[in-house]
Design a binder for these strands. Sequence first.
DNA 1: CGGAAGATCCTCT
DNA 2: GAGGATCTTCCGG
Length: 195
Amino acid sequence: MNTQGPISAAPLEGVTLRDFFERDAIAVARDLLGCHLVVNGMGGRITETEAYFPDDEASHSFRGPTKRNGAMYGPPGNVYIYRIYGMYWCLNFVCTPGSAVLIRAIEPESGIVEMAERRGTDQLTSLCSGPGKLCQAMDIGIAINDRLLDREPYALFPSSPVPIVSGTRIGITKNAEAPWRFGIQGSRYLSKPFR
DNA sequence: CGGAAGATCCTCT
DNA sequence: GAGGATCTTCCGG
């Protein structure tokens, strides 16, 4: 676990929540790997992320602000949650306006029993190994959209650098060749292996 | 105002 | 690996 404080309170060498997120989404997506995310007492170590940009056809912000993506234009460190395919939720952290990092997978650490219940499985590697799965496990939905990460029910803790692998993003058709998916090398807790 | 697409997941085969 | 579930959002007409 972390021996430092939350990113908001006891930053990595004096880095505030804003300083951490007010950067290029690729840098943030890489630096988030290994960090510990806890929501409502549930969560773990972030193992997989993806970066999205305003001039990126695959991004919800590509055509500017809408009712759905409003939270993407909130302050750095804001949370953007949206429904996908009519049945799952996805969790994002806002960087610069219209840029965000999709949290795609987590290695379960806290609240495992409750997460397993919500997911209907005891398989540790299946609890949070996908953007929809981790929201279901951690009870993340629109009720906690558009909030800052340094406030309840969120808590984010820093990490030392981890070995990183990258690849193309999952499930998109536009701008599909951009290598903006990142993961912890060798992790068993990914939505899909990197090749 | 209709319709197609969608940053997914599960269950088969 | 393919197909279905499920429904909101947003774009085009």
